[in-house]
Amino acid sequence: MKALPLHWDPLAATGLGLAVFLTVLVAVGWFRLRKRGQGSPRREGEETERWAVPELGTHEQARGRSIFHRWDPRIKIASLVFFAFCAASVDQLGVACVCCAISCAALLTAGTPLGFAAKRIAAMAGFLAMFFVVMPLTVPVLPGDEVVQLGEAGWIQLNLRGFSVAALVAAKALSVALLMEPLFRTCTFARTVNALARMGLPESLCHMLLIMYRYVFVFRHEISRLWVGMGVRGFRPGTNRRSFHALGNFLGMLFVRSLERTERVYEAMLCRGYSGRFPVREGFHARPKDWALGACWIALSMGVLILDGWAVPVLFR
């Protein structure tokens, strides 16, 4: 068996480091959630808590006093989304880490509960973990790559460059995911959507989003009641025909009920004078401060791009 190479590609090393960091972050998030659960009576395996849908920007959450809360939502969305695109198009791992750090700082400044951010990371974890496992095994070997051979006859070849590619993807995904919290949890969902409408998204789409957001919670309660109803009569899902049949009925029931509801909701809207438009009552006014903050973020994004495209390759290579 060949010994591990003593000197590693610095990028691969950073990649591994980031992988560890990511794992730790998810673990910490998970631990925090667990710990909160232990404070109150145990709730694991609770049928009624299934399919919990997190809320985005409740009235309470929007009351925070951070710089993100006070920012005009239109400029906030525009500049942060621009940053997200810049962060996602970075090619250097180091720069991606810088983006991550910026997002982390934004998250901490916004002061939104970290549990939500942890959940977001946990949601991506599976997809990203796949990269960490698959990439080192499948990335084609280019000249200059470190290859570690494991096993008797070296039948497992780990290309360390794979780690660095996976780490790059993870870092980019992380920097956007962390930014979602300051972006969307710092004002009410309705206000966010109204801001989107003001920014040129078709109004009809915005209204649909608002209605969807409302009925997701209604239907979630509906299916958890149905699920409990099946559970108390002994239904335990498994991989067999009967389970699939029951699940099909269960989903069918959801669709049938929602179809019936669509008509009633529409009629309720008609009754209260709906004529194809939702009334908008919220006004936005951007102060110079908002514009300045936006400009700062745009500058930061451009800075990241410049760093990525010119500074790092030229100065450090």
């Binding site: 209605i211 969807m212 009925y215 299916i223 989903l251 929602s258």
Partner: peptide
């Protein structure tokens, strides 16, 4: 459009259901 929106939330919720 409002009807499609309500139906969409049903699909959204359905996609949360995990099948063993």
């Amino acid at each position: 459009l409002p009807k499609v929106a309500v139906m969409t939330s049903a699909f959204f919720v359905a996609s949360l259901v995990h099948v063993p």
